[in-house]
């Protein structure tokens, strides 16, 4: 059986909200090391995945590997019944056809129980090669959200050009064109207060507009803004986002979720004509 106790319902709510518009249903793979998930969207353009490590839960028990088929819209409904600061207990018996949730208020004065029916999903698992990326960009997640929103006002795709001078995001459309250049900033990990503003609290003292860029080779990649905007739904889970890119391969966009794990998206680039 699986029994996992998570201190903050907000983490699970946030993860489901950041995936449910990309993936309708998928298997949660549970093992003694944690809970993971991987699924592509219907058009095979974007892959969403997450990992919640066993150590990140207050208590965690998984006696044998379980594959729990869930429909995200159902999960989203159930999790709306939990308050952000509720404790969540997830429980599934071996070979069960339901997944049980218990939401406990922090002062233990209210206990709610819900269950969702599990699905039998024959989902394929994709092998993602371990790779070193030529460019790794780290910026505050709220800045990334604003950037994607701003680019979307003009165009449908964004070109990311990473070079020695910095990383430039540019777009164009019917009304005109726009670009934003970020120069490498070491202040991204600087916890001292400065004039650049700060992140939303949390660890790292992220500068609001700082951008750290590690570059091995120049990278130029065109990406769909529709998908990038979808990925930014994970921004509330993390102070910063890491965008890893190489030429002509899928970009990886990762949001670390506290100490418990991460949510990671892959997006296939636009192909040049």
């Amino acid at each position: 059986m699986l029994e996992a106790r998570l201190l903050q319902a907000s983490i699970l709510k946030g993860i489901v909200e950041s995936v449910k518009d990309l993936v309708r249903e998928a298997n949660f793979d549970c093992s003694d090391s944690g809970i993971s998930f991987q699924a592509m969207d219907e058009s095979n353009v974007a892959l969403s995945s997450f990992l919640l490590r066993a150590e990140g839960f207050e208590t965690y028990r998984c006696d044998r590997n379980l594959s729990l088929g869930v429909r995200f819209s159902s999960l989203s409904k159930i999790l709306k019944c939990a308050n952000n600061d509720d404790i969540v207990v997830i429980r599934a018996e071996d070979d069960a056809d339901v997944l049980n949730f218990v939401f406990e208020s922090p002062d233990e004065s209210k206990i709610s129980e819900y269950q969702i029916k599990l699905l039998d999903i024959d989902g394929e698992h994709l092998s993602i090669p371990e790779q070193e990326f030529d460019c790794v960009i780290k910026m505050s997640s709220s800045e990334f959200s604003k950037l994607c929103r701003d680019m979307t006002l003009l165009g449908q795709t964004v070109v990311i050009d990473a070079a020695k001078e910095g990383v430039k995001f540019s777009t164009y459309g019917d009304i005109g064109a726009g670009s934003v250049l970020y120069k490498h900033s070491s202040s991204i990990d600087d916890s001292s207060s400065g004039s650049g503003g700060k992140g939303r609290g949390g660890s790292g003292g992220m500068s609001a507009r700082g951008c750290s860029i590690e570059l091995r080779e120049p990278v130029s990649l065109e990406l769909s803004l529709k998908y990038l905007n979808n990925f930014t739904k994970a921004a509330p889970l993390s102070d910063y986002v890491v965008i890893s890119a190489s030429n002509e391969i899928p970009v990886m966009v990762q949001f670390d979720v506290g100490d418990i794990g991460y949510i990671r998206y892959y997006l296939a680039p636009q192909i040049k004509d």
Binding site: E124, L126, S127, I249, P250, A268, Q270, K272, D273
Partner: peptide, 14 residues
């Protein structure tokens, strides 16, 4: 803009 690429040309089923 180019054509949207697909992930299954990069990632193969296990």
């Amino acid at each position: 803009a180019g054509l949207q690429g697909r992930l299954d040309t990069f990632f193969k089923p296990v």
